[in-house]
Structure formats: C-alpha cells, structure tokens
Write a protein that binds this DNA or RNA. Structure first.
Length: 839
RNA sequence: GCCGCUGUGGCGAAAUGGCAGACGCACCGGACUUAAAAUCCGUUGGGAUUUACCUCCCGUGCCGGUUCGAGUCCGGCCAGCGGCACCA
C-alpha cells in the first residue's frame, strides 16, 4: 500500500523551483534599451525548432533538442552572456482542421487546448525559456506580419542584374506580374482529392500525401507561387560559410540540383519551328540519333503529322490519366510514340525523329531532350525498345551492347575527336555559341514554391480580385483574419472552404477576396525574427532588436533532420528577401545548426502508436523527476546520433542524482532529510583538488562541444570521488552544483539553498579551472615492445628521453621480450609512452 | 541506381595516431537487514594456462596499405539506417 519511497524528494522541490522561476521571471531577457539590459555583455541566441502542438502531446523526442539548448542557454548565462532562449507554437496545420471537420469544433479551440497542454508539459521539464516572448503563428498579432511579409514578396521582383530582390517600382519591363516574387500561375499541381487541397512537391512522398498517405494526382490549377528559383544560386553559394552539418548542406544542394550545360536549338524543317533542348553533355551531340519531348509539351500539336495524330492523342490521354505514383511504378518500362516529324541535328545536318515519351519531364529544362542512346541509360533503354539507331561518340568502347555513360575521349565527332569529355564539353558549347546554335546554361531541379492551399486553418492571402486582376491589400488592412465557418470540409471542387463565407469574400461592390490560404510553412519562415521583438505592433521586428539579437544570425539552432529541405530552405529564402529589402541585417538566418538524432523505442524501432512503443515524458517525470528525464536524454549518447530508449538507463541517471542528493543530505532517525554530518569547510587534498579542476575542465569543454553525454560522465566521476565516508569539502560540492545546474537545475538549486549558499545557482558565474592543478609530477607511461604493452613505468614527468630509455630497457619484461633480438629502434614520447622495436 | 550517415563487450557508449572498452546499464559476489527493497563495496571483452599472484594469445564489420604504433589516416569491399530517385 505504501508508495515506493523516493530516493530523493524531487516531487516536492521540482514544482517549487518551476514556480520560483516563473514568479521571479528569472529567465526574462530584456531587449536593448529596456530596464535591466546590460550593454557590456555579449549576446547569444539559442533557438529550438518550435513544435506543432498536436493532440498527442509531447513525446520524448521533443525534450532531446530542447534539453540540449537549455543546457547551452543556462551555461551561457553563467558565462556572462545576454541569452535569448524563446519558445512558441507552429499552430496552423492540418490535424486541427481535420479534427474540426470530424467534430465541428473550431480549430482555434483545439489549438488553444493543445498549446496549453504542450506549455504545461514543457514547463514541467524546467526549461529556462523566456515565456514573455512566446509566439503563436495562429495569433492575429503574429500572422498579421506573415501576411505583411507576403506583401513584401508580392511587391518585389528579383533583379538579375543586381542579383537581389528589389521593390517592383524599379522594374522597367512591360508586365510586372511576370516578375513578382509572389505570383499566380496555372500550373500542374499535386492535387489530393482526399485532403481537398494541393500540396507542395516536398509534401508528396511516393505519389502520396505526406500527411495521411492519400493518393495525389497531377492537375492544372490556378495557384499562388513563390519565385524561390530566383534564389537558387544564392541558396547554394551562401550555404558554404555556415556552421552546419555537411550532410545537411549537401542535402540542400542536391535538392536545389544545379547542373551546368548548354541549350541547343534543333530546326524542324517541315513546320519551320525550332526545338530547344538542355543537355549536360554537349560533347555527345554527334551521337544524338533522335529527340524526345514531354507529352505535355506545347509544340506537340504543331509537329504531329496526320498519320500519327491518333497514336499521339491516345498516348497523351493515357499519360494525363496517370498519377505521379503510377508513373513511378511504371518507370521500369519506357513508353512513347513517334510524332511523325523530324528535326535536324545542327552539327551534322542529320534528320532525326522526334518522339514523345513520359520519361521526359515537362518541368525540367525545356521539356525536350536530344537523345544520345550510346551515352545515356534512359535513352539507351528507349532506343533498344523502339529500335532506334545508337552511335558511340565517346570511347573507349569495350562493349557495343552496353551504354557508356562515363567520361572518355570523343570519337566519330569531327572537330571534337581526340578530346577528353572535360575538354570537349566547353569546346562544343563555345562552338555552338559562335554558330548561334546554342548557349551555356545552368539548370536547377528546384521548382518555384507552390504556396497556396485550399484549407481553412491557415493565413488568408491579403489579396483581392477585381475584373480578373489581383491586387494587394494595404498594410493597414492587416491582419486579415479567417471568417467564422460552421463547415470546414473541402468543397471537393478545388474551391477552398473559405469560399463558403460569402459575406467575408465580398470585399467591395466589384472586388472579392482570395480564398486560398498559405501553407503551414509560412509561419515558421520568420518566427525566429519575431522572438526578438514579439509584441511590436509597428513592425514585425524593430531594427534595434533585430540588429542586436540577429547579429551574426541565430548562434545555435537545434532540430530534427526532417526539416533539412523544407523549413530550412524556405526560411533561408524569406530571410534573403528580407535582407535584400533591408529589413534584416544578415544574409543567412542560422549561423550554426545541429540536428539531434531520433530517439527510438526500447525495441530499437521508430516510436509509433501502432507499435505501442511510445515513451511519454510525463510518465518519466512522475516516476523519476524532470532532472532525471533531462539527464537521461543527454546521457543516452551523442546528441546527433539515433539511439534507442532504455528504462534502466533512466534509472541509472536517477541513481546518480540521488547520489548527489545524499552527498549533501542524510536521513535521520525519523526518516527526514537533513544536511549531512560529513559536510565540512575543509581543505581539499591534492587528489581532490585535481578531481575538481579536471571536472571543471572536462564539463566546460564538453558543453562547448555539445558532448553532453561525456560531460555527465565527468560529473559522475567527480561525485564518486567524494562519495565515501570521509569529510565532504563544501567548496568541492559548491563547484559541483554549479557544473550540474545546466543539466539538473532543480536539484542543484534545492541543494544550493539547503546549504545556505548565496543567491541561487543560476546567478553564479561559471567556475574556472587552473591548469597547474592538473599537472602531475609523476606519470605512469606504457612500455611497449613491438607495439605490444609489456609493462608500465612510473617516472617524473619531465624526465629526459634518454633516461626514460635506460629505465625502460632495464625492465625485466622488456628484457624477456627482447631476449635474443636486435634492438632496431626505440621510440620515446616523453610523458606518453615508450615503444621498443626489436627483431 | 545515386548521395549521405553508422558499424567497438550482453546493452547505451568512451578513446588530440600512443595502455581499447571511461561513465552508465545488466549480470555475479560481498556488506548492511529478522527478511526484502534501497544503499554501500567489489568482479565482469573472449580464450589458454595456473593452487594462486602471474603470464601468454586473440579482439573495434571484412580485405589490404601507410606508420615504431591504426578503432582513429588511405584504398577496396560488406551490412544496417536515412535521403533522392527517369532532373537529360
């Protein structure tokens, strides 16, 4: 019946300290110019990826990154920084809307309830967020500025001459609507009938929606787009100096997919048109034996001959009915139809047939290719299937029955013959340019960002339509809030749910509102800026606050890899636009990025409800306390690594914290905790002093390197050293509590207070170590024979190499193992080791 | 298929090119206890040999290389995980 006796009373003091921090606003960070701001301190901005407050509540993956940043935040404060460490909610999104569709409950209510729950859960872990800076993307005072930034995009264009965004007023071309960074286009989109909305390419996985896994089909629709492709070059180049994991940089680069090549024009004599293709292998032009264009290509009707008309029409119909997934599944087998027309290869005047095939994509390059079957796998397959000619123009050709897609030496190529691929490429490009047949070009895989959704629970576009023309609202008309609705269901026609709000739509006698909403990514594109100045009603962030906190960007940004190409690319894009328009002071938002590794279930599998292996942080806190949760999440292994959860591991760190507790406290006869009788104001022994200083050094260096697991090991070693029956020096315990504070803030504060030390631990400055205490005058070094450990030698640290050698050679073990052998070499690394090479 | 990451005890892991396995878990043994829990102390990579202290051999996914010396550096594989996937 008795509740299990707790090894230490965390359940009593943890809530007390959380309340203390809240009432005292311990972690409130003033802005420059505000009361309590200290100009003399340097700034540090440490940021978490804010969560989507789902109905499920927090899972143990969240506190992993959040604990890491909290340790850094607390540590940096103790090291004398002004620390910005905020938290907020990325609260627009599909789950709340789906729930609303099912229950009729307004998404705002669901969202508020989830936010409250998330916040409570986070506060139970004792994070040192400045909650006065909390932001919520669904708050009109927040999305007012999301809409405002959208208007900046709408009212800007990318000037290639200056390589940056400028206000549309500087554009001198004919139609500004062709260059706006936010524009409307009729494009083939990923339409998800089940969700009743279109999705970005990034939100479609294997032809299914990322959310829900519903089928997605291609369908042309009128949509809002953001011209992110203008920034492709800068998004690649400006990645270089950032302190990000190389893998993530690479992921972004591959996503943007830059490739250099040439545009080549092919004449079609029969209709007088010219077909332009993109190729990265202009050196293989002599091997182009046919052409392929995408079935959707605009030129198809014009070039199809009467005899092929029916076949082409059939094929196009067949392709149009296929979803992307079907296409992928059928990718193994090439399909296509001959158009009946021929083009002329500009280098050799050869007539080559033009086909249509769905292996050529509309959206990339010009939607047309020159096929060089001898040197391209896909063209090879296609040529084999339809019996088209194959001509090798790069050698050495070892097997005529295989495609040769590598670099080599040009052959059968007239003026290119003998050149290596690397030489032939630029030579041919220059030749084409000189002849007026083509030009050097760079192509990107990145497409413009499909920015509209047919949903209710998102930011409405600050746009009205009049006489078929779109026009921006003025900033004073913001925020534009969504209308109240009873029915949140998709209309099924592609018309967004907002279309049901007939009053809201009517802007004036002649103008109606845009009914699409922005995607969930919108709010997270700039939230880190809002934290700098969260309540500003005049600007999205004041110049002064932005200048101070964003100087050199966010200093540390921690989050999961799943955002490598979505959020992190979008946010960089918006930031660059704001930079170009002089609203922010840095080219890049996030100076240093760290990805925490996923936490798996105890079975080593990804945590999921269906597997039933989900660990709930609330349960861990109830049973072991918040400090144990924090400590375990950090002790599991390196932050960036994927690692499985272990309940006995939690108990392990829990026992460690209990040992720290009993270092200071002991239980009396009545079972009450009182200060340990072993505590004393005693001098440290040399050994203890070394342990203290080595501990400070290790913990400090490990925190700086984000190696929290080894920092915790070091504190365990430290604690074990003083856990004995001997006297416990207060000075050593005091230092331990300071080192422990960023990791286990509740326990360290509680013990600090019970010991009657000054103020709180949070207010202490970080301890320094003294290197001289770490130097031993005697060291034990290994003695090896032929690289194998044979004995050890304890010597004075600065003993000359010659003397070490003598001592080593006199060791019985050494004599034994070198007996009968010739000494070839003796390697002495003073203070490190001796290696005797004998044979 | 391409790109990236990771392979070390029974488990999570640690190790500026220099004593492999710190720290923790689990296991085993001991102390305390009427007993249990908790706590404290100790053992624990594998093998051979020995009464015992000892001593020796093997060992960081596999094969090779550089080096006095490789978990660490280089080359070639293999496996697991993640990303991209007809991008011309």
């Amino acid at each position: 019946m008795n509740e299990k006796r707790k090894p230490y009373p965390y359940d009593q003091f943890e809530p007390r300290w959380q309340e203390f921090w809240e009432t005292n606003e311990t972690f409130k960070t003033p802005n420059p110019g505000e009361l309590g701001f200290d100009v003399s301190k340097p700034k540090y901005y440490v940021l978490d990826m804010f969560p989507y407050p789902s109905g499920e509540g927090l899972h143990v993956g969240h506190p992993e990154g959040y604990t890491a940043t909290d340790i850094i935040a607390r540590y940096k404060r103790m090291r004398g920084y002004n620390v910005l460490h905020p938290m907020g909610w990325d609260a627009f999104g599909l789950p709340a809307e789906q729930y609303a569709i099912k229950t009729g409950q307004h998404p705002r209510i669901t969202t508020e309830r989830n936010v409250t729950r998330f916040k409570k859960q986070l506060q139970r872990i004792g994070f040192s967020y400045d909650w006065s800076r909390e932001v919520n993307t669904t708050d009109p005072n927040y999305f007012k500025w999301t809409q405002w930034i959208f208007l900046k995009l709408y009212n800007s264009w990318f000037n290639p001459a200056t390589n940056q965004a400028e206000p549309v007023e500087t554009y001198t071309g004919t139609d500004v609507n062709n260059v706006r960074l936010a524009y409307v286009a009729e494009v083939p989109v990923n339409w998800c009938p089940e969700l009743g909305t279109v999705l970005a390419n990034e939100e479609v996985i294997d032809g299914k929606s990322e959310v829900g896994g519903f089928p997605v089909v291609r369908k042309p629709m009128r949509q809002w787009m953001l011209r992110i492709t203008s920034y492709a070059e800068r998004l690649i180049d400006e990645l270089d100096p950032l302190d990000w994991p190389e893998g993530i940089k690479l992921l972004q680069k591959n996503w943007i997919g830059k490739s250099e090549g040439a545009l080549v024009g092919f004449q079609i004599p029969d209709c007088g048109l010219r077909l332009s293709v993109f190729t990265t292998r202009p050196d293989t032009l002599f091997g182009a034996t046919y052409m392929v264009i995408a079935p959707e290509h605009a030129i198809v009707d014009a070039i199809t001959t009467p005899t092929q008309k029916e076949a082409v029409a059939d094929y196009r119909k067949q392709i149009a009915g296929k979803s992307d997934m079907d296409r992928t599944e059928l990718a193994k087998e090439k399909t296509g139809v001959f158009t009946g027309s021929y083009a002329v290869n500009p280098v050799n005047e050869e007539r080559i047939p033009i086909w249509i095939a769905d292996y050529v994509l509309t959206g990339y390059g010009t939607g047309a290719i020159m096929a060089v079957p001898a040197h391209d796998e896909r063209d090879w397959e296609f040529a084999k299937k339809f019996d088209l000619p194959i001509r090798f123009v790069v050698g050495p050709v070892e097997d005529e029955d295989k495609c040769f897609a590598l670099s080599g030496v040009a052959l059968n190529s007239k003026f290119l013959n003998g050149m290596t691929t690397a030489e032939a490429k630029p030579f041919m490009t220059t030749w084409l340019e000189d002849q007026g047949l083509g030009k050097r070009t760079i192509n990107y895989k990145l497409r413009d960002w499909l920015f509209s959704r047919q949903r209710y629970w998102g930011e409405p576009f600050p746009i009205v339509w009049e006489n078929g023309q779109h026009r921006a609202l003025t900033p004073v008309e913001l925020p534009l809030t969504p209308p109240p609705l009873d029915d949140f269901k998709p209309t099924g026609t592609g018309e967004p749910p907002l279309a049901r709000a007939t009053d809201w739509i009517r802007y004036s006698e002649t103008a109606t509102r845009e009914t699409n909403t922005m995607p969930q990514w919108a709010g997270s594109c700039w939230y880190y800026l809002r934290y700098c100045d969260p309540t500003n009603s005049e600007m999205f962030v004041s110049k002064e606050a932005e200048n101070y906190w964003m100087n050199n960007g966010v200093d540390l940004y921690v989050g999961g890899t799943e955002h490598a190409v979505l959020h992190l690319l979008y946010a960089r894009f918006w930031h660059k636009v704001l930079f170009d328009l002089s609203y922010v002071s840095t080219r890049e938002p996030f100076q240093k990025l760290v990805n925490q590794g996923m936490i798996l279930g105890t079975d080593g599998q990804k945590m999921s409800k269906s597997r039933g292996n989900v660990v709930n942080p609330d349960d861990i806190i109830s049973e072991y306390g918040a400090d144990s949760l924090r400590l375990y999440e950090m002790f599991m292994g390196p932050l960036e690594q994927v690692k499985p959860w272990s309940m006995s591991g939690v108990e392990g760190v829990h026992r460690f914290l209990a040992r720290v507790w009993r270092l200071v406290m002991e239980e009396n006869q009545e079972g009450q905790w009182e200060l340990s009788s072993l505590l004393g104001d005693v001098e440290l022994t040399n050994r203890q002093r070394k342990v203290v200083h080595a501990g400070i050094k290790k913990v400090t260096e490990d925190i700086d390197a984000l190696a929290f697991n080894t920092a915790i090991s070091a504190m365990m070693v430290y604690t074990n050293e003083f856990t004995g029956t001997g006297a416990r020096p207060l000075s050593a315990i005091r230092t331990l509590l300071v080192l422990l504070n960023p990791f286990a803030p509740h326990l360290s504060e509680e013990l600090w207070q019970r010991l009657g030390f000054d103020k709180t631990v949070s207010e202490q400055s970080w301890p320094e170590w003294n290197e001289t205490y770490l130097i031993e005058d005697e060291v034990e070094i290994p003695v090896q024979v032929n690289g194998k450990l044979r004995d050890r030698l304890t010597i004075k640290k600065d003993l000359p190499a010659a003397e070490i050698e003598l001592l080593a050679m006199a060791l019985p073990k050494v004599l034994e193992h070198t007996d009968g052998k010739t000494i070839r070499k003796i390697v002495v690394v003073p203070g490190k080791l001796v290696n005797i090479v004998a044979s």
